[in-house]
């Protein structure tokens, strides 16, 4: 049965799109047919992170308005089999996403795909609401920084009250915490909230911790999801997240200060 995953955060700039791209790519690499939808109408960016911006012809809103079929709008990833991208519209406003329209698209995707990843826009307005409404699972992307943690808490409140699963009295949306831009050194020096602090405050299961890493910017510069880079700590941490999401038990890494030595030098900062 198809699972719908929303990647959300409340706050902007914490890594939702990077995470959506990594997540969808990771699931496809595991052999699951995966579609990733950009819900950020008016500010489309997922296509850039996925490196398919020049292949966008039709978008999500075109499909909702029946100006194009879903198959015309879906972009097949050139690198990875099973991975498809549905880009957002760059020109319209968020109100173009109607509840009925979004539901119809998701239902049609459910006929073909195993996973549907919804990349939410920032904020708690219509676009974010539409991205989370049909979700079965939610990945809440949080930075170890107070405003981000507070906004994540706000989003958790919405996930528990404003989603279809809640409205229909089904089991609530399964929530996971994903910490990004984590810096073990700064945590050790008492300059950054720790994984434990944040988990204690938000009290949802931890899916993963992505260390602050230069390779994230490199990946977005090149339009290659960072999870593909097996030399990157961030990429490896995202791979671990996919494993945990699929039920594997994987030990957390990159949350303690790295040991120096040849291994540390090889992987340091990448």
């Amino acid at each position: 049965m198809t699972r719908v995953i929303v990647v959300t955060s409340g706050k902007g700039g914490v890594g939702k799109t990077t995470t959506s791209a990594a997540f969808a790519t990771g699931l496809a690499l595991q052999g699951y047919k995966t579609a990733v939808i950009d819900f950020d109408v008016g500010l489309r960016n997922l296509d850039l992170i996925m490196g398919c911006e020049r292949r966008v012809v039709y978008d999500f809103v075109n499909v909702i308005n029946k100006e194009a079929t879903l198959n015309q709008a879906l972009i097949r990833d050139k690198r990875i089999e099973n991975l498809h991208i549905l880009p957002a519209s760059q020109t319209r406003d968020k109100e173009a996403l109607t509840m009925e329209g979004v539901e119809a698209v998701i239902n049609e995707l459910k006929e073909t795909f195993d996973y549907i990843v919804c990349d939410s826009p920032a904020g708690i307005e219509h676009g974010a609401y539409m991205a989370m409404y049909f979700a079965d699972e939610a990945v809440v992307v949080t930075n170890p920084e107070i405003s981000s943690v507070r906004d994540s808490d706000r989003i958790l409140g919405l996930l528990a009250s404003k989603t279809k699963r809640v409205v229909e009295n089904r089991t609530p949306v399964k929530e996971y915490l994903l910490l990004t831009r984590y810096s073990p050194e700064r945590v050790k020096n008492g300059e950054m909230l720790s994984v434990d602090d944040i988990q204690e405050i938000l009290s949802i299961p931890l899916l993963g911790v992505i260390p602050e890493s230069q390779s994230v910017l490199t990946a977005s510069n090149q339009g290659i999801p960072v999870i593909i880079n097996k030399n990157s700590r961030a990429g490896l941490a995202y791979s671990d997240c996919i494993g945990r999401f699929l039920g594997e038990e994987i030990e957390f890494r990159f949350i303690d200060v790295k040991k120096s030595g040849i291994f540390g030098k090889l992987f340091g900062g990448r």
């Binding site: 409140g157 909230l193 405050i201």
Partner: peptide
């Protein structure tokens, strides 16, 4: 005081208050 401790204390109070209002 470490700034992370200050952050945690501020956040805990803030979130308790947010929950109360919510």
């Amino acid at each position: 005081r470490k700034s992370a401790d200050v952050a945690k204390e501020r956040l805990s109070i803030l979130i308790a208050r947010d929950h109360f209002h919510r």
